[in-house]
Design a binder for these strands. Structure first.
Length: 475
DNA sequence: AGTAGATTTGT
DNA sequence: CAAATCTAC
């Protein structure tokens, strides 16, 4: 029985937006005084703490979200600690009769959410969860035999053949007043007290110049991309020196834009047949869906080879200095180095270059993919629990529908092919500014002051990798 | 979503 | 003889 001072509680997590936010929309529709909560949880069992770049992003995204909520009459409550304890306590203090959230798909998070749903049921509180962050929930897409998919193409075909993708919801025009907790509204941590931003040194200058975290930044990025680059996506996405990709990944990671909104905006611009280039972009959203499908059905994707045969793989002993050279962009191979420096400076790396840089670490340096996965987790603004490990396993060949073992990128061939004019290399490697024409792809033939000599011989290290992978095949 | 080496094609 | 195409790993 609802009492007159009953309230609602919306718990936001990886959905830092007002647009197409089913949990928020449902709560707003109730009209009860409403608490909007975000929890920084680094304590619950199994939770993987955010990397440094993601912490920077989260700070700015929450600041933007708080301002957006306030402009509509609401307020963001920030709390830090164990999620289940905080939600239970706050629900009690605010006399919440209804709790709303949008679903998430990692094992530790699902365990917390399921526990809270049980607790709510036992305490007469209505807890409702919604589909908001994936177009297809991982358990709904099944093979003919009833199991999860292990190959991308049939997975995406099955998605496309399944039920229609729902329309996105508009952001609520206004939001209910904040719920009271005893004498006033619930206290909130200050964002600054979470110390998410780097100090001494502040390495975030390049990130701030590159990104606008928050819902407005996400919407602008989506519009800019769909109004131009997407029409030439098939080729444009491979040229790292241009703005040929959407750069939506961190916005999707933090839920500042809904995949349902992206889908609808594409459809709105192409009501008839979807052009091939636009279809390729949509299929990249499909890879995001596939990777979450994989994680849902394989919760230890970040630590365990998807293909158990790889448990016997003989990774090389990578020296501290070799790893540091890769991390710092000092391998002597311009495309790899430009990519690793772009990552360090901006928190992001072009996908074509990610493949080349990851291939170099895993195959030419024969490094366990988990080492690379951890570095990317710490330095990427867009790393999430599914896509980062799934993509590393794809490169290593240990994953589902993975790259074949003999696919070893040649960073010189790749940069000649995809950065022919060297504009990407020049943008991130000052030591190579002076090199003329094609010399920039092979600086050792010209000599460039301050730029390192190649860390390993490409042909030799390639043969070593092929031998190691061959051994695995022979077992 | 690859590379390298061999073979064929085209100017 | 360079570029496009084919093929095995």
């Amino acid at each position: 029985m609802a009492s007159s001072d009953e309230t609602s509680l919306v718990w936001l997590r990886d959905d830092l937006r007002l647009d197409d936010n089913p949990a928020l929309a449902e709560a707003a529709g109730l009209g009860l005084p409403m608490t909007v909560l975000y929890i920084l949880d680094e304590e619950s069992e199994g939770i993987r703490p955010l990397g440094g770049a993601a912490r920077w992003w989260l700070h700015h995204s929450l600041a933007a979200l708080a301002a957006d909520l306030e402009s509509k009459g609401s307020r963001l409550v920030l709390r830090r600690g164990k999620s289940d304890a905080i939600v239970r306590k706050l629900a009690g203090q605010t006399k919440a009769g209804h709790i709303f959230w949008n679903r998430r798909y990692s094992q530790p998070e699902r365990t917390i959410d399921a526990g809270l749903k049980d607790w709510a049921g036992e305490n007469g509180i209505h807890a409702s969860s919604f589909q908001a962050n994936l177009l297809f929930e991982p358990w709904t897409i099944r093979t003919g035999a009833g199991g999860p998919y292990k190959v991308y193409s049939p997975f995406w075909r099955a998605c496309m053949a399944s039920a229609d993708i729902r329309d996105p919801l508009d952001a609520p025009a206004a939001l209910p007043e904040p719920a009271a907790s005893g004498p006033g509204v619930p206290t909130s941590d200050t964002l600054a007290s979470w110390k998410l931003l780097p100090t001494s040194p502040d390495w975030s200058t390049g990130l701030a110049e590159t990104w606008e975290p928050g819902e407005k930044g996400a919407a602008d990025r989506l519009a800019d991309f769909l109004d131009g680059p997407v029409e030439d996506y098939g080729t444009g996405r491979n040229i790292p020196g241009t703005e040929g990709t959407s750069r939506l990944s961190p916005h999707l990671r933090f839920g500042e834009v809904s995949p349902f909104r992206v889908w609808r905006e594409i459809r709105r611009r192409h009501p008839g047949k979807i052009p091939a280039d636009v279809g390729i972009f949509r299929s990249e959203l499909g890879w995001r869906e596939f990777n979450w499908h994989l994680l849902y059905h394989n919760p230890d994707l970040a630590t365990r080879n998807f293909r158990p045969a790889f448990d016997n793989f003989q990774w090389g002993r990578v020296s501290r200095s070799e790893l540091a050279a890769w991390q710092q962009g000092k391998t002597g191979y311009p495309l790899v180095d430009a990519g690793m420096r772009q990552l360090w400076q901006t928190g992001w790396m072009h996908n074509r270059v990610r493949m080349a840089a990851a291939s170099f670490l895993v195959k030419n340096l024969l490094t366990d993919w988990r080492i690379g996965e951890e570095w990317f987790w710490d330095t990427l603004v867009d790393a999430d629990a599914a896509n980062n490990p799934a993509n590393w396993q794809w490169v290593a060949g240990s994953g589902a529908d993975a790259s074949p073992y003999y696919r070893i990128f040649n960073p010189v061939t790749q940069s000649k092919k995809f950065d022919a004019d060297g504009s990407y290399l020049r943008a991130f490697i000052p030591e190579l500014q002076g090199l003329e024409g094609k010399q920039i792809h092979e600086p050792w033939t010209a000599g460039a002051d301050g730029y390192p000599a190649p860390l390993v011989d490409l042909a030799e290290s390639r043969e070593r990798a092929l031998d190691a992978y061959q051994k695995l095949k022979d077992e």
